[in-house]
Amino acid sequence: MIDWFQKLGRSSLALFERLGRGGLFLMRVFAAIPSLVPRPRLVIIQLYSVGVLSMMLIVISGLNVGMVLGLQGYNTLVDFGAEESLGQVVALSLVRELGPVVAALLFAGRAGSALTAEIGLMKATEQLSGMEMMAVDPMKRVIVPRFIAAIISMPLLAAMFSAMGILGGYFVGVGLLGVDSGAFWSQMQGKVDFYEDIMNGLVKSVVFGFVAAWIAVFEGYDAVPTTEGVSRATTRTVVHTAFAVLGLDFILTALMFGSV
């Protein structure tokens, strides 16, 4: 019995210790951000590997999710003779929920894990210590550019996901199933509010991008510098980002749309 309590205590202490380290790490990241201003190129290189290389995945996934939404939405709506509302259904579900959430999950799998593995391996092969030896702050040189690039990429990727999804819904709904094209767009425009829906979706994607970036670089920086440690850290990045994104999504949705 006592052993059980000890275990519980140990794991909660470990959890809080980790959270504390993550928080301190974030402070150091924030403190190092101004050093990027004279060297924007560092961010551009990372934007390429984090953003550009994730773009294809996001675009194709978005298109597919939108097409599925179009099909499923149509099948349900046609029973009520309301298939003209298909545009509204597809747009609202993408812009409010699926765009930010699915893009963040894909982002964690595609870019977050890569960031963690990269930073973790740099640590394992003592490149970070090497930089310190050369009086180069790895925080400024390695961590912050990746962090910023991830935060910039996420909202853009989420917007692409939603836009592609709506196009996918349009192709299936209007092209395949014969929903009227004008009704599709006008019902959508009638019901999707710029501030209420698009802006809130954007805020969500910024928050998710921040969380995903934080978890990815922290896990990499905090990884046990062995092969196994890096592989564990990579797994943790994906799992923790998924938990964090889905949990935060509920909280944000309740805050944004709870009273609507």
Binding site: L47, Y48, G51, V52, M55, A91, V95, I152, S153, P155, L156, L157, A159, M160, S162, A163, M164, I166, W185, M188, Q189, V192, D193, F194, D197, I198, L202
Partner: peptide, 17 residues
Amino acid sequence: FVAVGLAALVMLAMKVS
């Protein structure tokens, strides 16, 4: 990448909302 992302946002703003 940045241009496409911004274009997607503009499309969401103008065409969808």
